[in-house]
Design a protein around this nucleic acid. Structure first.
Ligand SMILES: [Mn+2]
Ligand SMILES: [Mn+2]
Ligand SMILES: [Zn+2]
Ligand SMILES: [Zn+2]
Lengths: 155, 155
DNA sequence: ATCCTTATTGCAACTAGTTGCAATAACTAA
DNA sequence: TTAGTTATTGCAACTAGTTGCAATAAGGAT
């Protein structure tokens, strides 16, 4: 926990029991968690803790790079402890999820840098589509109906 | 509006005054809008319309590919009429936003298909980073502090 | 050890978004 | 046209997430 403390202090922020509780929970579980889940767990670590503080803490720690945030599926926000840069592929049909390393996006980010000047640093992107299994079941609605007026599904 | 109607009907859904109102608003404004904005505008088109219906309609039309959804900045969901496939680059520092065509991501999606089998169809992805201007002001915190424990900011 | 500055919290009230369910009304088919 | 099926809506209650502000306490300095 002390490394986290020094990171924050160097930037003029403070380490608090509430932030420790959240970091502890995130480190212990090591997976995507909703704010509500974090709140429930953090309350066990630190009984007095309130909901607004959890939301603010999750947001703050994400900004500081200690946590990763992501939208998965139905627009719910989830968080996880930041250890390795990675991204996610999720099947719109069955929900199957796959984790991929950042290497696969490195070239894209470099191209974007060259063509737009933007230095992209999104290290936890979620892509949606169809998993191999669900592609078979669906007769690839690629060109058939959408083409005229509409584009494609959301991201 | 009739083309939209036939798209939905072919899939077993119905065109309603509420859906027409939302589509009208989205087509008229032609930009990213929050659900609340859409609600206020749609109410003018169709006075009786309620909030839950707007949320459900936005979600439904996104699933059907008639609208695009995206998360921009502070986790707020925005929608826009689906005309052309595109993505967004947003500066974390000053908020500057840039639109890019899908061609820039096509190669990535092809690589993902080859390496994972997933057929990605996210046609409205938002990437965060630093615009050219803000890169100068910030001494590129690339390696300096984050490296040991933490990863990078959220996406 | 004590004081001081101000980042951070808790509270309470608020806004945003979701859900179950009965009533409504598109569309289909006679 | 009319009747029937059921997708969709409105309502109301609910859950999720945000915000202003005064009270608290972390960490630097003495
Ligand atoms: Mn993840
Ligand atoms: Mn857009
Ligand atoms: Zn699948
Ligand atoms: Zn900028």
């Amino acid at each position: 926990m002390e490394p986290y403390r020094s990171i924050l202090q160097k930037r003029g922020y403070r380490m608090t029991p509430q932030r420790i509780a959240v970091l502890r929970v995130m480190a212990e579980f090591g997976r995507h968690m909703t704010p509500i889940e974090v709140f429930q767990q953090a309350q066990q670590e630190l009984p007095g803790m309130t909901e607004p503080t959890v939301y603010r803490t999750l947001n703050f720690l994400s900004e500081q790079g200690l946590l990763l945030a992501a939208h998965v599926g139905s627009g719910q926000f989830v968080y996880e402890i930041a250890l390795r840069d990675h991204h996610h592929l999720i099947c719109r049909e069955c929900g199957e999820a796959l984790e991929i390393g950042h290497e696969l996006l490195a070239q894209l980010y470099e191209n974007l840098k060259n063509q737009t000047g933007f230095q992209i640093n999104s290290m936890h992107v979620t892509f949606f589509g169809l998993c191999p299994g669900c592609q078979e079941k669906k007769p690839s609605a690629q060109i058939s109906d959408n083409s005229s007026t509409a584009g494609q599904q959301s991201g």
